[in-house]
Design a binder for these strands. Sequence first.
DNA 1: TTCCTTAAAGAGGTTTTTGTCCGAATTATA
DNA 2: TATAATTCGGACAAAAACCTCTTTAAGGAA
Lengths: 152, 152
Amino acid sequence: MVLSRTSQYAVQALIYIATQAPGEPVLNRDIADRLNVPAAYLAKILQSLCKHGLLDSFRGRLGGFCLRDGMQKTSLMQVLLLTEGPDFTKSCILGLKECTDETACPMHFKWKPVKNKIIAMMNDMHLEDLAKAVQTGKYRLADLPAAAMPVA
Amino acid sequence: MVLSRTSQYAVQALIYIATQAPGEPVLNRDIADRLNVPAAYLAKILQSLCKHGLLDSFRGRLGGFCLRDGMQKTSLMQVLLLTEGPDFTKSCILGLKECTDETACPMHFKWKPVKNKIIAMMNDMHLEDLAKAVQTGKYRLADLPAAAMPVA
DNA sequence: TTCCTTAAAGAGGTTTTTGTCCGAATTATA
DNA sequence: TATAATTCGGACAAAAACCTCTTTAAGGAA
Ligand code: FES
Ligand code: FES
């Protein structure tokens, strides 16, 4: 409805990494297993997040990915601007090229406050806080494994 | 950010048709020209909306599409449930299979009110009203043609 | 040094979404 | 009846999103 799969994987992975001891690299394989996400694809996403400075990566034994120093406070908006592209916040819900009060589509003035709420929400959520929430054990970062699901 | 291109085309087209005299079929070609969208693709979308009962279609001379009687009051939610699928309102922003208070992801309780706002908004907007808004001339259904754009 | 482990890089595959084309069916009108 | 205009239906094509595989480079440990 709002985020591409790539963005979802990126956010999930970053939150997961943020729950782990800082400075201790986390294996791509472990993240993929934990989130139940395709490992080779996730690796690409993490590599891209490295290039953009959110993560540090280390090769070889004891290698893996960890949050770059200071990046605990990264907002989801910062992440989404990378994964969804710089126009993430600029789109018209009907697909018009411009979305301004002057070029409004018939949904614009209803949509604008909702869109602003989404933007504010994404600006307001930081990896740190989301990681803490997960650490309370009250929230899920991934679907339960099939084995743990009630029989259908 | 929220709607597929197909949904955007569908909504634009339905609003446009709703601005035209009821009972007077509108040509697919005219809609496509007016909205500046691919005609052959739009035709598929309109055919699908016919099958789902939102539109009536007529072949041959004086043919075209028009809103089925009584469908002026169709809400955008009704349209989107067809174009985006019946799970449109059910998705978790992180992609989890379930989105309930009991299976909450770390974004759930922030996201839920925004999502509900979107749903309420879509339930609250009807083709009729959007068409009237367009008819005031204050709102755009499509981008201005390149010819009318200021030189870049 | 040699081996093992890991990420990096690039090529390529699959699936979904978006878009095109064409022939057949249908209808108004001359 | 012939013709032109239109939707319908199916196959196809292109692009984007999603995902895999293989090889290479780098780092740690025996
Ligand atoms: S112009 Fe369409 S949402 Fe702003
Ligand atoms: S569980 Fe993720 S948004 Fe509801």
